[in-house]
Design a binder for these strands. Structure first.
Lengths: 144, 144
DNA sequence: TTGAAAATATTGAATATTCAACAATTGAAG
DNA sequence: CTTCAATTGTTGAATATTCAATATTTTCAA
């Protein structure tokens, strides 16, 4: 039974927040070499399949709520990394596409992100990493 | 070897962000019954040992940077949940203490948080939960 | 077919967070 | 001792996020 006086460091919610903060901070540091926030890398990565993705779909995928995404996309459109196209099948929707410039940037960012993953693999271990990923996926599944 | 064209859902940083978002959202929902954000619960929990904690120490513990913490503490002081005392040994420092009202609120919040942990244990399993906690602690350790 | 409800995206105001600069105190080297 | 650098916390301006309201389009039931 979980004890209400247990220190906060034993709560799953806290451990997740702490680990996320640390790993995210490291990734942020790498991506800052290209002057791009983590969320923009996520957006570019999702769009890099070349298909059009609606704003709602994208918001889910990149873990941002709708108004925040809209404003971030505005900035990325100004930077000509992505562009909007109205969905011809459902004119409520806007489909987002990655531009050529976006693709070039995305490749650079991918390599920075892979650097980080490799760094984690080294210090944390192959086995732990894949086991952690498996458990996280399963936690996410069981939460829906 | 990590592939740069692997989907974002395979990156550790992404899985952590996703799991954190989901679990945090659930906790937020519970704590909102007392109208308290997750960060304030963390602050109260850390201070509930009855000792004085400096702002810097607290900022580390509750995963907030200094200016954000200062402003959140301002609100909590207004709500008489905590109070400031200048550290007599080092007058640059401010020691934070929990008030009686803060203690009462903290007990209610603890019980809501424990509810959530138990809910996770049910749907996700005892074994997975403790294994996930172990791996997260170890990841955090290896990142310092 | 029409009209109400749902889905989708955006906007603007309110709120929160972050960055850079500041003030106060301590530490430590000369 | 004195002075200069480092530590600690706060502030205000700039930035970002969120909430509620809006506009548009689609869906679906009557």
């Amino acid at each position: 039974m979980a004890k209400s006086n247990s220190p906060i460091t034993e709560h799953l919610a806290y451990l997740l927040a702490q680990a996320n903060r640390e790993i995210n901070r490291q990734l942020e540091l790498r991506l800052s070499k290209e002057g791009v926030p983590v969320e923009q890398w996520r957006i570019l990565k999702v769009l890099s399949d070349g298909n059009g993705h609606s704003m709602g779909e994208l918001a889910d995928a990149v873990l941002l709520n709708h108004p925040t995404l809209t404003k971030m996309i505005d900035r990325m459109v100004s930077d000509t990394l992505v562009y909007r196209v109205q969905d011809p099948n459902d004119r409520r929707k806007v489909l987002m596409f990655i531009s050529d410039r976006g693709k070039v940037l995305c490749r650079k960012l991918n390599s920075l992100a892979v650097d980080q993953e490799e760094h984690i693999l080294e210090s944390y271990g192959d086995k732990s990493t894949s086991e952690l990923k498996r458990l996280l996926e399963s936690l996410i599944d069981s939460s829906n």
